[in-house]
Amino acid sequence: MLLREVDYARPATVEEAVSLLAAHEGARALAGGQTLVNVMKARAAAPDVLVDLVDLAELRTIGFSSDGLLEIGAMVTYTQLVGSSEVEVARPILAEVAATIADVQVRNRGTVGGNVCVSDPTNHLPPLLVVLDASFTIRGSGGERVVPADEFFVGVYMTAVGEGELLTKISVPPASDTGDGFSGVTIGKHGTYVVDAAATVSGEGARIAIGCVAATPVRATEMEERLAGGDFSEDAVREAAKGLGASLDPPSDVHGSADYRRSLAETSAVRAVLQAVERRKR
């Protein structure tokens, strides 16, 4: 398909990328392009300038910070996540979920930064990063700031990354006394989620987030409060999920009615928590 005319720049450093994004109104960062190129075809986005991040090697690394956080560069691909020994050691759920995103070709190009910055309500990583209590490092011309996951996702296709800013990395606490789970119902085996749920359990309780039911991931706060006592028996988890669906206002579309999504939210949350509990035992 013929795209609308667009300008293209390939900065060599993060500083150059940020100054390009700040200097040109209508500039967009181009990561793997697995969403952006398609929405440009559909004219759903029509950037005037594409700032290609391909040469920014420092955004492609996975490592650990001095205080032990798992640090994932914004340009790390899903395939990299799946094969990373650091992820395997620190938070294997990230690799497990990344392995179910789309297909091999998309996983080879699609990036973690792109997935979260698109902030599509059906994307896999936003609810997961919310329960993992990830933090997002954003670079602008004025310097760097760090935003927690609960504040990063602002709306459909909107995040805390402002104009002239660039997400550079995502930091995730390593698993300690924790177990992680992810569950949901997709359209086809590895297709788009109709509803998904992510959960992390520890001695202190659970963090649970539901995807596809609102513009951004929704924390299941009441369910979390009911599980704060640390009773993670199957009966307790099922009981704790009651009323979660009724508290949501999900969309109705061709893939499912709002009521169906309410029901799926409870089922998915239970499955995600039970999976997390099972893994915490290992």
Binding site: M1, Y8, R10, L30, G33, Q34, V37, N38, L50, D52, V54, T79, V104, Q105, V106, N108, R109
Partner: peptide
């Protein structure tokens, strides 16, 4: 060396 869908890349990205 890795498989990609060439309709989701710009030619300039392949430089």
């Amino acid at each position: 060396g890795v498989s990609v869908k060439s309709c989701m890349l710009l030619a300039v990205q392949a430089d």
